[in-house]
Design a protein around this nucleic acid. Structure first.
Lengths: 194, 194
DNA sequence: TTTTTTGTTGATTGACGAGTCAATAAACTT
DNA sequence: AAGTTTATTGACTCGTCAATCAACAAAAAA
């Protein structure tokens, strides 16, 4: 039965199952057995490949960040002009994918995890650093040396809008969030122009 | 031994202990025994008064919101002028108390809870509604009919800044967050003035 | 062909935890 | 004084779960 080269396949299946289960339960209170079952293997095998549940969470976190990063890069690659690049980042940040149950569960719970697990905090810092550098490079032509400050508030606004869309009752509205963020940007630019 | 009228005293002790324990552990993975021990009683008594752990969490959540509400009201009561009132709300939102371990743990975990527990979601909605109405009433004299829109983005910015301050490594800087939010407000007002 | 490496699981361990219950005791009521 | 309500806990039930282990299977290496 055993086919060789299963490790990456199994790991990927486990990572995806982890994210789905966190989304389904809404917390990190998922059992290794649940995850393993969804990934189509025994819990012993999950432990064999990841060693511990925490390692599985961190791998899942990396995967979520990678997905988001890819989404941003993809949107940036077809964007034109500085404002187009900002729009691209915003649209990627508020894309329907990020409002799916699994993504929401992942983000909220990873924030909780980052409180106490240094590795998780580091991952978040990397993600924020990348977002920030993308924003700054797009803002530079528009705002000059005020790019850093605007990137900071815009980044915070993105997180805050995401949080609110996700926790409000009713369907989240990504497009509205994009518009609101763009209005903020416009205001900041105008303020600097005087 | 038993003195009468213990119920409110015990409940209050349990609520406070719940918040402290959530902050200490960083997650909702706290046991009723831990909480009861910190509150100086047996776990059976905790169950006697609250029935279930979830009820304890909700009571703790209500307590945190009440504290925050009181802080805002207190700051508003001595504020002068519309801009002073905005400043007061911001300072209360980014006060040192809100950056204490317990408060941070409470907020992050309550967001997670709000995903799946309707009662928690309702509580958050109430808090957001109050914040919003405070912001709108302070903004009205400054921004007229644009008050609602600005309140929305300012509210999101508050949440986002809080999240970032709380998750970044190093000591949180509430004053910087206040300044950043005020700059955003100024930009929005200027934008409307033209 | 023996040996080693890789894949895989059922069964088990050892620990922990939410919620219940019976029992005890003090205070308050009638 | 007898009965009721309120306070309180130790002991217990019943369940769960992370992690380990022994054992088996197949492919690759020797």
């Amino acid at each position: 039965m055993p086919k060789l080269g299963m490790e990456p396949i199994r790991k990927e299946a486990l990572v995806k199952a982890t994210i789905v289960e966190i989304g389904r339960v809404g917390s990190l209170d998922v059992t290794v057995s649940q995850i393993a079952k969804r990934a189509g293997m025994s819990s012993a095998l999950a432990h064999h490949y990841f060693g511990s549940k925490e390692e599985m969470f961190l791998a899942a976190m990396r995967h979520i960040m990678t997905l988001y990063g890819a989404e941003v890069r993809g949107a940036l690659s077809v964007a034109e002009g500085p404002e187009g690049r900002i729009r691209a980042i915003l649209r990627a940040s508020f894309s329907p994918g990020n409002f799916r149950r699994e993504a929401v569960g992942a983000w909220l719970n990873f924030w909780v995890l980052a409180q106490t697990v240094p590795a998780a905090r580091r991952l978040l810092a990397i993600y924020q650093g990348r977002l920030r550098s993308n924003l700054v490079s797009a803002l530079r032509p528009l705002a000059g040396d005020r790019a850093e400050g605007i990137a900071e508030s815009l980044g915070a606004l993105i997180d805050g809008l995401y949080l609110r869309e996700v926790l409000k009752s009713g369907a989240p509205d990504g497009a509205a969030a994009v518009e609101l963020a763009l209005r903020h940007l416009e205001a900041e630019l105008k303020r600097g122009a005087v």
